Amino acid sequence: MEPGNNTQFSEFFLLGLSEEQELQPLIFGLFLSMYLITVFGNLLIILVTISDSHLHTPMYFFLSNLSFVDMCFTSTTIPKMLQNIENQSKVITYEGCIIQVFFYIFSAGLDDFLLTVMAYDRFVAICQPLHYKVIMNPRLCGLLLLVSWIMSAMNSLLHTLMVLQLTFCREVEILHFFCELNQMVQLACSDTFLNNMVMYLASVLLAGGPFAGILYSYSKIVSSIRRISSTQGKFKAFSTCASHLSVVFLFYCTSLGVYLSSAATHSSHSSATASVMYTVVTPMLNPFIYSLRNKDIKRALKRVCGIVYMCSPS
């Protein structure tokens, strides 16, 4: 294939999870179901936290934002994948690919920052309970959220602008179900040393940094819980952060699994399949983890369902 400037062509080809035609209806049905569950579950969390005054606390404020980001995360990739399967097409426009890259990196980064902020919230609640309302005031919560959005947007914009500077071959086949940054960089015909360096540094700083913050917060939380004398008190303290810890474990383990499987097999199809875990499965499971493990959410859901039932026509 002849190299050409990145403005001389208008489309890429997403090869998806499998090229076998008989599997396409199964993949379509599976991903459509997971997408609908993800949107409905996260939207329900947002509506419940907004409608119930008992949930107007920092923890649920950040949770509703996490649910919104999870909806955006899946909406960036899945609808286009479903459209291509329905139309029996593998095409995505150059502009559409760039947009996917931006919002994918933005959503993943914001997920990471929000999980870190939520870990800090649990740290203050357990380690400094008497000062919780003073420290986690609305101004600080808003500032933490704003910084998270700005940092994620700047990181995403940097990667996107650097991709725009690359030169691609005229027909680019991406062995993935969406325009993943690393795949695009590998397929470029021009020098990608700077792109690879920026990706590496961003991974260390913007993924490793928040993860280190989460580990530090939970090391302090564990130390505080161990100092509690009663078993019931220890259980109550741990239960307040069990849901968040489960989501953190799921997010980082699935993300790490993608890169380990990719490095071990050197197969793009294997990497694409593993990516399903943190791009689709994790956002789908988050609402269930918080609703099933959280008594406040369950009470709010029952209250909202009761109101809907009373307001519905007999």
Rank of each mutant, 00 (worst) to 15 (best):
S275R: 09
I307V: 11
S271L: 11
S291H: 13
H244R: 02
I297A: 01
T279W: 14
I228Y: 05
L256F: 09
I307A: 04
Y216P: 03
Y309R: 11
C305F: 14
S262N: 08
G233D: 02
A237M: 02
S255N: 04
S224R: 09
K220P: 00
A274W: 15
I307F: 04
Y252E: 08
S246L: 10
S275Q: 08
T231L: 06
S219H: 04
H244F: 07
R293M: 10
V308Q: 04
L256I: 13
Y290D: 08
L292V: 08
K298S: 13
G233W: 06
S229V: 13
V304S: 00
K220M: 00
S239I: 05
H244L: 14
F288G: 02
L245C: 12
N294D: 15
S270V: 14
S246G: 00
I221C: 05
L301N: 03
S261K: 06
S271V: 01
L256N: 10
V222T: 11
R226K: 14
P287F: 09
H266T: 02
S255E: 06
S229Q: 15
A264W: 15
L245Y: 09
S261I: 09
K302Q: 14
A242Q: 06
N286A: 06
S275C: 07
I289N: 00
S291L: 07
C241F: 05
F249H: 10
M284H: 06
N286S: 04
A272E: 12
V308G: 03
Y278E: 06
T282C: 11
T282E: 10
V258T: 07
F238I: 04
C241E: 03
G233P: 08
L260S: 08
T231Y: 10
M284C: 11
G257E: 07
T282I: 10
P283G: 01
A242H: 07
T282N: 13
R226Y: 12
Y218V: 00
L301C: 12
L256H: 08
A237I: 11
R293H: 05
S291M: 13
I307N: 02
N294L: 01
S229C: 12
S243Y: 08
M284T: 14
I297M: 12
S271F: 03
H269W: 12
K236H: 12
M277A: 14
Y309C: 03
T273I: 15
K220E: 01
R227A: 05
S271E: 15
P287L: 08
A300M: 07
G257K: 00
G257D: 06
V281T: 10
P287G: 01
S262E: 07
D296N: 08
C305G: 03
